[in-house]
Design a protein around this nucleic acid. Structure first.
Lengths: 195, 195
DNA sequence: TAACAAATGTTAGTCAATAACACTTGGAGG
DNA sequence: CCTCCAAGTGTTATTGACTAACATTTGTTA
């Protein structure tokens, strides 16, 4: 049994990753040009030069092809590293801002395009919120690890509220076509939460 | 052109309402006994003695059959009637509690069963959140009507956070099997929000 | 009671998703 | 280098949500 701490790098694995990337690119291109609902999985697969079965072997659902890479582990780490005397809401605020800066710096335009697509497509919005339900619980766990004394209801409410603040900031960012900068919007959203 | 301020009461309308009710009852019964995913629309329709087309003429999707009657208008009214000098978050808190008491008093057990079904079924959870996206905006509008001076971002964040608090309370209520009372949980959730 | 319209049924589709089975090809050991 | 295994893919068939077109039943209303 191999330890396999890092992914395989053989030709086979490279091909697989390439197919996955191609599917994702073609899907995004088609969604943006003719809309999510008007694009069939069959079309995406054809555009990527594979069969629809290959599509579903790489992505469990049509929605999954739009999903962001999972930022949760990064944010969780950032939360756990906040100073233990820091208020729970502040810790969430700072951790989210730190994580966001990293993503935002490299990806800004792509992030805007994809976020707009998601927020304007009901099926994709629903998918995102479903993910956030899980994220909320991870946040709550991370907060509990920091402060084992804390009230369970309180940290769950604050986790949910923090994600709500982030979502609102994202919505306004998309509304402004990216004219406003995202991190300041998130700051304002958290300040609104604090009264 | 008739004003039609109240629904028609003829035999036809009564039959239609009856069919709708029967479909909803049979659907809920089947969902609870064999699970949402394991129940097909065809089965529900057969149990209600209609064809699957009639099902879809009464409910746009399979998920819609579980949806609560729309409480939004009531809550909106309650928000708008809060004293104008009251803080936005407090207004949301009081309005939600008032609306909740009304629903809770009459419906408690049915509410618990249906809420549990929804929270344990991913497809239904997603549907609820999609609705809450709309509800959030209605709340924000109602708050803006009360206080035209208020910051748009702030009232949207607070609306989203209020719904997050309500959701968390509902989740804990379901977790406790209804042993805890819901209104106090909502109160605690809002207090957590206020720091 | 005749005529209209609302409600439902029948039938035939589309599309997402899954399953079963066959095929191609990279990778590891001899 | 060759062989064999398994990962990756293709083909085909099926289920289930949902839609469209058209026919049929059944209140309503004049």
């Amino acid at each position: 049994m191999k330890p396999s701490p890092n992914p395989p790098t053989g030709l086979r694995a490279r091909k697989k990753a390439q197919v996955r990337r191609t599917i994702q690119e073609q899907a995004l291109r088609l969604f943006l040009s003719k809309g999510y609902e008007n694009t069939t999985v069959e079309e995406i697969a054809a555009a990527a030069g594979v069969s629809h079965m290959t599509f579903f072997r790489h992505f469990p659902t049509k929605e999954a092809v739009v999903e962001t890479d999972d930022y949760d582990p990064m944010i969780i780490q950032l939360i756990e590293r906040r100073p233990p005397d820091e208020d729970a809401l502040t810790a969430l605020h700072r951790a989210l801002i730190q994580g966001l800066e990293a993503v935002y710096a490299g990806d800004k335009d792509a992030l805007l395009v994809r976020t707009r697509l998601i927020l304007t497509t009901p099926a994709l919005r629903a998918r995102v919120w479903e993910n956030q339900y899980a994220t909320e619980r991870l946040f709550a766990e991370a907060l509990a690890a920091r402060q084992p004394e804390a009230d369970a209801l309180r940290i769950r409410v604050l986790s949910a509220a923090a994600l709500a603040a982030l979502n609102t900031a994202l919505a306004l960012w998309v509304d402004s076509q990216g004219a406003e900068d995202l991190p300041p919007l998130v700051d304002r959203a958290f300040r609104a939460l604090r009264d």
